Amino acid sequence: MKDAPIVFQAVISHSNDPDTLSAAIELIEHSQRQLAGAIAQTGILFAAPDFEHQVLLRHISQAFPHLQLIGGSSDAEISSEMGFQEDSCVLVLFHSDEIEMVVGIGHELSQNAAQATATAIAQAQSQLTQPSKLCITFADGLTQDGNQVLTGLQAVLGDHFPILGGITSDQMRFQQTRQFFHNAEINNAVMSDAVVVLLFAGPLQFSHRTAQGWTPLSQKGEITKVGGTTLTEINGQPTLEFYRPYLNGAAPTVEYPLAIFTAPDNEQFYLREPIRSDPMTGSLTSTASFPETGTVQIAYGEREKLIAASQQGFIQALADYDGNHPAIVLLFSCATRRVVLGTRTTEEYHVVQSLNQLQLPIIGFYTYGEIAPLNYNQPSEVHHATLVSLIIGT
């Protein structure tokens, strides 16, 4: 007799009701109908910045008393229930008898990222009975360099451990983002300057891919002076001088990120987007650090190429999936992609959904930085202007 299939259930609820209490009730009632009596063990919540987040968390946790939950504020939200939405909230709840799912939180990222990340992982791992296989994380990228967060997680989990997720966002205000956390010890925490993690262990299968689609605009240059998240010089000149001929002297914006090549003889790159510039020093600042040295090139986004890349990335993630029963798709896309795609942003979701022949539930959000390996089985990186597709199941 064949072994019974491993149960791994993921149910999604999505509300665009502007009233926080009404939205919470909608999420809860829809989730309860789908669970049909199964116990929700863990969850992920994404919500626009203007919701009363503590109200959302309190009502969700009261409705699901065994729940551990992480999440954060979002630029926009995605789900198979409502597609692409702005000013909404979306919840996924997980249930499994065989797969372990536990959460952890680290505070005061800006003071000590290594300690905060180590605390979050230790808190989660203390609940596991077997080695963890996958980490999903959300963190504040306005108070701490996203690379410092990732480096801290990798210091504990290992350089090649699969870490995926995103930097929480606030609809391009760049003022304050929120991280959500709930477990038996810490109730309904809505924080800033924090990192939250969800660890999976047991018979889990997953696959992931990144998608970019950005086109080189400029000649290549060499980084010659950098200080963490601030890039001061390219080719021995102020960074803004490198941009000047291509933008007619205008200040660089997120629509013109820098492609940073992984090696001088390699055409693969990750992206860094400028969130502000300083005309006095000629520098620009991002939400994740730049390498001390490296080759860079200004890039720009063509809508057709961005959408085509999103489609191809999901195709690759599907092809890489080795399990028999995929359960959910998580999408982490960049707020910059939403800005560039404009009225065509919904197409990024629709090209993924059009390939979703198994009708898997989909959930995601638009971030200030995406965390995933650039290539399969490589160390995770912090990306900008990128779409990450993650498929989880058994």
Results as ranks from 00 to 15, higher is better:
Asp193Glu: 08
Val55Glu: 05
Ser277Thr: 15
Leu355His: 10
His59Asp: 08
Met191Leu: 12
Gln311Ser: 10
His95Thr: 15
Gln54Ala: 11
Asn16Lys: 12
Gln297His: 09
Asp159Glu: 12
Leu109Met: 12
Phe261Val: 05
Phe314Tyr: 15
Ala319Val: 02
His66Arg: 06
Ala48Thr: 05
Val340Gln: 13
Thr143Met: 03
Arg209Val: 03
Thr285Ser: 12
Thr262Val: 14
Leu67Val: 03
Ile12Asn: 11
Pro274Lys: 06
Val254Gly: 00
Tyr368Met: 07
Ser277Asn: 14
Leu27Ser: 11
Thr210Gly: 11
Gln32Val: 10
Gln125Leu: 02
Ile70Phe: 06
Gly166Met: 04
Val92Leu: 14
Ser80Pro: 07
Gly166Trp: 04
Phe84Ser: 10
Thr295Ser: 06
Gln130Phe: 00
Gln62Cys: 01
Leu360Trp: 04
Pro245His: 04
Ala288Gln: 06
His325Thr: 11
Leu35Thr: 03
Tyr376Asn: 13
Gly249Met: 05
Thr168Ser: 15
Tyr300Ser: 12
Leu153Gln: 11
Val296Leu: 05
Glu77Met: 01
Leu306Glu: 02
Tyr246Cys: 03
Val11Gly: 08
Ser15Phe: 05
Arg178Met: 04
Gln68Ala: 13
Thr336Cys: 14
Ala184Leu: 09
Gly227Gln: 14
Leu157Thr: 11
Thr295Glu: 05
Pro65Ile: 10
Gly152Arg: 03
Leu45Cys: 02
Gln359Tyr: 03
